[in-house]
Simulated scan of single mutants.
Amino acid sequence: MKRDALWRSIDTERQALVEQLEPLDAEEWATPSLCTGLSVREVLAHMTVSGAVSAPRWFLGVLRARFDFDRQVHERLNEQLGSDHRDTLVLFRSTIGSRTSPPLPRVALLGEMLVHGEDIRRPLGLVRAYPRQSLDAVLSYYAGTDQVVIAKKRIAGLRLEATDSGLTIGQGKAVRGTSLALIMGMTGRRAYCAELSGPGASILADRCS
């Protein structure tokens, strides 16, 4: 995907998530997400960072945290929480159309919208039909890198077969499933591994532990 198309896709995912989260009550916002130790509200605040913090501000935060990246992530998340869940949603909504971002490839930002979007949606019982172009781009990106999240290493020696697109990536024991299930499995979300099949499925599930 070209740069402009990636930005449009990022905006599409941000808008779609806002629309699905607007009706939630305070109790639902406190629902544990698929990210261990983080609520739905906290994950959304984390997602806001990628549309609100520029590369210089990000590097400054790293220095302030003395290269403790977990501390940096936590501090940035808290900046975007706001006083309540309504503020959290307003802050996230403000990233729609933003071209500000930390020093990450645009496709990595799109991947964050899909993966963290599912970290939020799955526990809430929400479903999204993601555009095919976005799924293919994110699946291919994560299969080739460990830059943002361990994914390439997790699928080493496996062949991913997307049953909804015919896209095949890698060599080895087959892991079959929808593009979304493959993306979530290769990024460590064990909850999606039950949707995968093939001789390599159990191997990937073990690597998500």
Rank of each mutant, 00 (worst) to 15 (best):
D87R: 15
D87H: 14
D87P: 10
T88A: 14
L89K: 05
L89D: 04
V90Y: 11
V90F: 10
L91F: 05
L91C: 00
L91E: 04
F92D: 13
F92K: 12
F92G: 12
R93Q: 13
S94K: 12
S94N: 11
S94C: 07
S94M: 06
T95Y: 08
T95Q: 06
I96N: 06
I96C: 03
G97Q: 06
G97A: 01
G97F: 03
G97N: 06
G97C: 04
G97S: 01
S98W: 02
S98G: 00
S98Q: 01
S98H: 01
R99Y: 00
R99P: 00
T100F: 10
S101I: 00
S101R: 13
S101P: 04
P102A: 03
P102M: 01
P102E: 11
P102K: 08
P102S: 06
P103Y: 03
P103L: 01
P103G: 01
L104A: 14
P105A: 09
P105Y: 04
P105W: 04
P105V: 00
R106L: 10
V107D: 09
V107P: 04
A108F: 05
L109R: 07
L109A: 05
L110I: 01
L110Y: 05
L110H: 06
G111W: 03
E112R: 03
E112Q: 07
E112N: 04
M113D: 13
M113F: 07
M113K: 10
M113C: 11
L114D: 14
L114E: 13
V115G: 09
V115L: 09
V115M: 09
H116T: 08
H116D: 12
H116V: 10
G117S: 15
G117Q: 15
E118A: 00
E118W: 02
E118P: 01
E118S: 03
D119L: 11
I120E: 12
I120K: 13
R121Q: 15
R121L: 02
R121K: 15
R121Y: 09
R121G: 02
R121E: 07
R122F: 06
R122C: 01
P123R: 11
P123W: 14
G125Y: 12
G125Q: 10
V127A: 00
V127E: 08
R128C: 03
R128V: 00
R128I: 01
R128M: 00
R128K: 12
A129R: 08
A129Q: 07
A129M: 00
A129P: 03
Y130A: 02
Y130T: 02
Y130W: 15
P131H: 05
P131L: 02
R132C: 02
Q133T: 05
Q133N: 08
S134R: 08
S134H: 12
S134G: 08
D136Y: 09
D136L: 09
D136K: 13
V138S: 15
V138N: 14
V138T: 11
V138C: 11
L139N: 12
S140G: 13
S140H: 14
S140M: 13
